[in-house]
Design a protein around this nucleic acid. Structure first.
Lengths: 155, 155
DNA sequence: GTTTTAGTACTCGGATAGGCCGTGTCCGAGTGCATCTGG
DNA sequence: CCAGATGCACTCGGACACGGCCTATCCGAGTACTAAAAC
């Protein structure tokens, strides 16, 4: 049960893009800010763009920017865009295999159901928190961060 | 974000061991019931034994049995035993790297905090469901399963 | 001075290798049972 | 017939390969800007 680190990168980049505003920021610049491999970060941002969270513009003065306001981007959107839409627990229906299989039974696997309940709670909590919420948390503990970020990216 | 399939195997095996009762069941027999690789399933059951969920007895008439009653084994216990105690989202503190790093800031990463809230909800739901609960669900939809399992494993 | 045009530098985007963890397999240590042997 | 010893079959337990996905990288297509040149 391990989440790719691209999720962390993506959320931080969304925060920065929100603070910068409507100005496009290249992937290379975001990578430089966090000292990350530029090409790979670009890959993650592409995933966000495919999911409709970011808009990408090529050429000089191009880059990425938020496709919607931070209030309308949830952490669930980001996680789903990077990690894919699949559930963490994938029921392979082992109860249908081997001598104990009951092919007449078409009910849902109880184990899958129980795991699904837990995973649904996880997704619900992710969907309840928006990028704007995280921005507010950062600004509450570090009020100078937004301006620092904006200045660094706009120079 | 992908959970190892060993978790599914482990939960199903816990159900079967609970239905069988206090009789020890070898890993090979459990593997045969679901048509799974025996040695690998043994590995997973070893993990459950290390976590204190099962007791293992070697030699003839040996095997695995539940170390506690099904009411006192939660799905969180099983998942934690198989997948390990680590959190799915591991904050690597990229905000401390690169030119934007603020080394004077010792506050907690807001992204990690937000992800932690969601993951905590997931763990809470897993801890709220016991093996006995899943057993009850199965018996509700398929009342004949417990006896079928008991008979197959005790013959 | 204005317009056209060619060049150039910069950006994303997808196609291409490397490394680590989950998956699968194997053999050895230990235990309990059954059998055999001696009294 | 009974007690002890012996061999054996069975089980877990940890050590050893294989493959797929995450990580990382490179190069090409497309675009906007710049600058020069022609009118």
């Amino acid at each position: 049960m391990r989440m790719g680190e691209g999720v962390e990168w993506a959320v931080h980049c969304c925060l920065d893009l929100a603070w910068v505003g409507d100005r496009a920021v290249p992937a290379a610049r975001l990578a430089a800010y966090y000292d990350l491999p530029a090409a790979y970060l670009n890959k993650q941002l592409q995933a966000l763009a495919r999911a409709g969270l970011l808009t990408s513009t090529p050429g000089p003065r191009g880059g990425f920017r938020l496709a919607r306001t931070p209030e309308r981007i949830t952490l669930m959107d980001v996680v789903s865009a990077i990690e894919g839409p699949d559930h963490a627990f994938r029921c392979t229906e082992i109860r249908r295999r081997g001598p104990g299989a009951n092919h007449a039974d078409h009910s849902r696997c109880a184990v899958d159901q129980a795991m699904g309940v837990a995973e649904l709670a996880w997704r619900r909590e992710l969907a309840a928190q928006t990028v704007a919420d995280v921005m507010a948390t950062v600004q509450r503990t570090n009020p100078d961060v937004p301006d620092r970020v904006r200045r660094w990216f706009t120079t």
